[in-house]
Design a protein around this nucleic acid. Sequence first.
DNA 1: CCGAACTATATAGCTGCGCTATGCAAAATC
DNA 2: GATTTTGCATAGCGCAGCTATATAGTTCGG
Lengths: 144, 144
Amino acid sequence: MNESVDTLQSLIISAHRLTRIAAQHTGNGTSPAVWRTLSILINDGPMRIGELAAASRVAQPTMTKIVQNLAAEDLIRRIADVDDARAWLIAITPKGQNALNTWLQQVAESAAPLFSDLTADDWAAMRAVASILERHISVSEVAA
Amino acid sequence: MNESVDTLQSLIISAHRLTRIAAQHTGNGTSPAVWRTLSILINDGPMRIGELAAASRVAQPTMTKIVQNLAAEDLIRRIADVDDARAWLIAITPKGQNALNTWLQQVAESAAPLFSDLTADDWAAMRAVASILERHISVSEVAA
DNA sequence: CCGAACTATATAGCTGCGCTATGCAAAATC
DNA sequence: GATTTTGCATAGCGCAGCTATATAGTTCGG
């Protein structure tokens, strides 16, 4: 079972290197926390700041600040929560969806040359693993 | 080929979420740049600060600072370069190897419960992908 | 060999992330 | 309806990582 440990380690380190390669290649230094947050909003729909902080795995005040910055750029919008006057629902805007897509596109394009020699089987394995990870790290799973 | 783009995006986002889960779970907030650096030193042996900065994909002054911090904790040591008095070779110490291993172990252990239901086939796919990524994002590959 | 250009690292100073501690206002509880 | 609890905001700190620049060693033309 130690192979699992090595595998996870390797996956994580490689992914972080990919991120840095893309960040340098595109000159886009947007923080991972920002696009993690946008991606959560797309996948799981509008939610409160507190939920968003837990889902994106940052402290609540950190998420407050992220949301403020995103709102200033119209990438998200705040919707009053009719049930609780203290709370807001945070929703991604079309502009926000574009911003995330553009960023992800840049990452993938920066990485693409490194993977030009992958076979169809390789890509199939990559897709399978991406799917496994998504299922097991989704917001609902991790809530436990 | 757009599937490749989606796949890479998904892998990267999942990996970053795993990292945050581990950081919160263990309370170990060590910067990704630090263990990326240590992992490069283990895989590729001693190298200069400039090379290390390029390999870890940070600016040179950033690496200077990282190396200073790591040296203060005896996780790396500086070796004078006999060929060039301006340069140093940076080598990881046994203590540094332990530190990296401990950190990676914590990450994997934090993640393990999420993956307890994976089949042997799933793990085989994970290993295959980890291997693919390592081969394509190694320091020598990326030098281009 | 001597000075100019180049190179390897270090320093200075900035911006912004993410944290803890705390404040404040709305719910919930009794 | 006063107390406790909850959800978010603010304050303020520490540090990562950046650009610009300084410093010291190397290389190369003459």
